[in-house]
């Protein structure tokens, strides 16, 4: 058991589409878990990275203070940190809000929206602080690999992970690289 590769995953300001694409390796998952053990991940109840994670896969950009904390936890505990998908690499679609003042986004949802009652901006201390802009991961921590795509296909995950697990430098054939 101890010789298994530990893989941690998380989704920050993403949509879970990259995680879905990872699960799209389908029955190959059975082969993967012969050599991989999942650490912290949304598919289990482990909430903190162990200190000896081999690979961290991070989907989504950074949009609030909690995202920053989680990202730093992953960097601290994972030997290899991977920015997975468009949002992790450059902020992706959520970064469209970078062109609009945050106050206006909040006002649209909670003050001026259609059918909104009791208009107010949620402000409870339980709610973490929003960042002014949505940031890519590499602006916060060092990233070792980037898997492009919205989302990267299941074959990208498979090729990347099997290369790494085999101890070789991962390389993606041209047809697997998409910037959609």
């Amino acid at each position: 058991m101890t010789s298994k590769i530990r893989v941690a995953t998380t989704s920050l300001a993403g949509c879970f589409g990259c995680h879905m694409s990872f699960l799209d390796i389908d029955e190959r998952m059975l082969k993967l878990v012969e050599v991989v053990e999942f650490d912290r991940s949304p598919i289990n109840d482990i909430e903190h990275c162990s200190s000896n994670c081999d690979i961290g896969l991070i989907e989504g950009g950074v949009c609030n203070s909690e995202n920053v904390h989680v990202l730093r936890e992953f960097r601290k505990n994972c030997k290899i940190l991977v920015a997975v998908g468009a949002c992790a690499i450059n902020g992706g679609l959520p970064a469209l809000r970078n062109f609009v003042p945050l106050e206006e986004c909040l006002a649209e949802a909670y003050l001026d929206g259609i059918g909104v009652e009791n208009p107010q901006i949620p402000s409870d201390p339980e709610l973490p602080l929003l960042l002014d802009k949505v940031r890519p991961l590499h602006e916060v921590v060092k990233i070792d690999y980037y898997l492009p795509g919205c989302p990267p296909s299941a074959d990208v995950f498979w090729k990347f992970l099997t290369d790494l697990i085999a101890g070789s430098e991962p390389s993606l054939p041209y047809e697997l690289v998409h910037y959609d």
């Binding site: 300001a13 609030n64 469209l96 809000r97 986004c105 006002a107 649209e108 973490p128």
Partner: peptide, 11 residues
């Protein structure tokens, strides 16, 4: 509590 916000309706 739902603790995150995106702002799709505006952007």
């Amino acid at each position: 509590h739902i603790v995150e916000f995106r702002g799709f309706e505006r952007f």
